[in-house]
Amino acid sequence: MADRDTNAIRDMGSFYQRDRAWHPPAFTPQYKTSVLRSPQHALLSLEGTVSEMTGPRFGHGLLGPLDNDLIRNFAKDSEPIGQRIVVHGRVLDENARPVSGALLEFWQANAGGRYRHKKEAYLAPLDPNFGGCGRTVTDDDGRYWFRTIKPGAYPWPNGVNDWRPAHIHFSIFGHAFTQRLITQMYFEGDPMIWQCPIVSTIPDRAAVEQLIAALDRNNTLPMDALAYKFDIVLRGRRSTAFENRMEGN
């Protein structure tokens, strides 16, 4: 109960200002599609109101038993081809506190770098046993994990010879709509990360490094799957105790 009260109080302060210099700007001409899709006016800064400081919550009851197992959730007659991996980590806020009950959704190409999507034109074949989507909800410590195969790199129409490094797309729902985030996870040791026009939309090298999952030998499943560790940080909030004092209460 005490814990719940602490959480309730923690969840009421306003959010820290988003560090827009850490995120990619909207207009990044090396990523050509951004040119016509980037707003040019300044964003209107708005301290969160209750409209954005609340958000939907997704319970563990939403999940089916195979939702976090991309090796089996679409498999027809056998398992998908590719390097078997486990991805695990924690969702934390900027105060380094775990975010429990966060919904994570992932999508990725198959081992050959091909997506299962009608607008996808890459010549690498579909894998009949691989769909490419999964989801999970973090536990009380903010932990999550899922099993999949390592996606392949793929070429894409931007420059005449641009390739994406191997990556997994992540969508993350924290507790408030202001925390909504979509990002991509890369793999330790991949030289293609540093040649990618989408990665390079992020101005700060340290911010890119935060997107690179570490090979985690201690958590490999012996004789089964390699493990990668990927922690995610969502926006944090002020303590309301502070805010009340600031307001002279």
Binding site: E94, E105, H117, E120, G131, H169, I182
Partner: peptide, 27 residues
């Protein structure tokens, strides 16, 4: 901690977020 940096949702966001809509049924 620093907030995890955003990256584009890309052209295939539907695979992850609306899989039934884009033809990935049964998951």
């Amino acid at each position: 901690l620093k907030e995890t940096a955003s990256q584009t949702a890309g052209p295939y966001v539907h695979i992850g977020l609306t899989p039934n809509w884009c033809g990935i049924g049964g998951v």
